[in-house]
């Protein structure tokens, strides 16, 4: 448990920095506006960052176990793109549905997209582990083209942009709470972590130890889809997070999820906090969305993982 003990204070520190970073000064006024700012905007933002980060990192880990491939995560398997398509469809079909309802719909499409991805993987004779993320990225591209097509026709490009690129500047109290659902699911994932570890060892081994393989895969898919959908619906996708964090944690601590999942969740929260802080100070008083910062950092780490390949991915 030692890595957790080390990670927690770091993340708390980052959280504190996150709360105190921003345009409005917290100390300037005596009439309690500073406090209001914290409760209404800063604290929700920091919480949203941590919830989304933890959720996506854990989702990435579960997907890597399900696909048995190190390079899979919600943004390299069509999951995030499918969720965005779902949001768009919900918006067109039932514009009056509350956000939670739209999100539920997005979770369904995310589930369908990810299941399709896993089906393709099962059908294709995989010559190389690298083909898996390649197929996922392209599947995401195709889904994305469909979404763009519809969004373009109905003038919803702006909403679509919001779902596809993580941006926490819009977070206020009352507009991020859906992410707690994601957090609840993260806890579920932790409770069932051992099963996902076994799934990661392959279907034969999983069945051999008496696991209901299909059931666990379905549970995993459900968790991943819901978490992704909550993130996409509230703040927008943060690419590569679910790839970078689990890979680094796995390099250091291995793959026993029972032990590593808390570290993964906390590190995920910490990384997103850090990216957000960077995005907020680089061009203050404007900000760079966290999705963009993570896109740069994440693809660099991904490239490093690919080219050094210590992760025995294939």
């Amino acid at each position: 448990m030692r890595p957790v003990l080390f990670a927690i204070p770091v993340v708390l520190l980052l959280a504190a920095v996150s709360v105190f970073t921003g345009v409005g000064s917290l100390a300037s006024s005596d009439d309690g506006r500073g406090w209001l700012l914290v409760v209404e905007s800063r604290l929700p933002r920091t919480l949203a960052l941590m919830l989304a980060g933890a959720g996506l990192a854990v989702s990435g880990t579960i997907m890597q176990m399900l696909a048995r491939n190190r390079f899979v995560e919600p943004s390299t398997a069509g999951t995030a793109e499918s969720a965005a398509l779902g949001m768009l469809l919900a918006m067109l079909i039932a514009p009056n549905l509350p956000v939670a309802g739209k999100m539920a719909f997005a979770a369904l499409t995310a589930l369908a997209g990810t299941a399709l991805f896993l089906q393709i993987l099962r059908r294709v004779p995989l010559r190389s582990a690298l083909m898996v993320p390649l197929i996922g990225l392209m599947l995401g591209g195709v889904v994305n083209a469909v979404t763009t097509f519809i969004a373009y026709r109905y003038d919803l490009m702006q909403s679509m942009g919001a779902w596809m690129s993580g941006d926490f500047s819009v977070v206020l109290r009352g507009r991020y709470e859906l992410l707690w659902i994601g957090f609840a699911l993260t806890l579920v994932a932790y409770a069932t972590a051992a099963r996902f570890t076994v799934i990661g060892m392959g279907e034969a081994i999983a069945r051999n130890v008496g696991l209901d393989y299909d059931k666990v895969v379905t549970l995993g898919l459900a968790i991943v889809s819901m978490v992704t959908a909550t993130v996409v619906a509230t703040v927008g996708m943060i690419p590569f997070l679910g790839l970078v964090v689990p890979n680094i944690v796995s390099l250091i601590l291995g793959d026993n999820l029972r032990r590593t999942l808390p570290v993964i969740a906390i590190s995920g929260a910490g990384l997103v906090l850090a990216c957000d802080i960077i995005g907020r100070i680089v061009i203050a008083p404007y900000e760079v969305p966290v999705g963009t910062v993570m896109g740069v950092i994440g693809s660099l780490v991904f490239l490093h993982l690919l080219l050094s390949r210590r992760s025995h991915a294939g």
Binding site: V288, V296, L303
Partner: peptide, 29 residues
């Protein structure tokens, strides 16, 4: 391996795009 090349290329493309949008954000609106 060719798959490595492809994946590296795809990710590089993603990196270029992210860098572009990063710079674009840093730009004057």
């Amino acid at each position: 391996s060719l798959h490595l090349l492809m994946l590296v290329g795809v990710i590089l493309g993603g990196l270029f795009r992210s860098l572009s949008s990063f710079l674009q954000r840093v730009l004057d609106p």
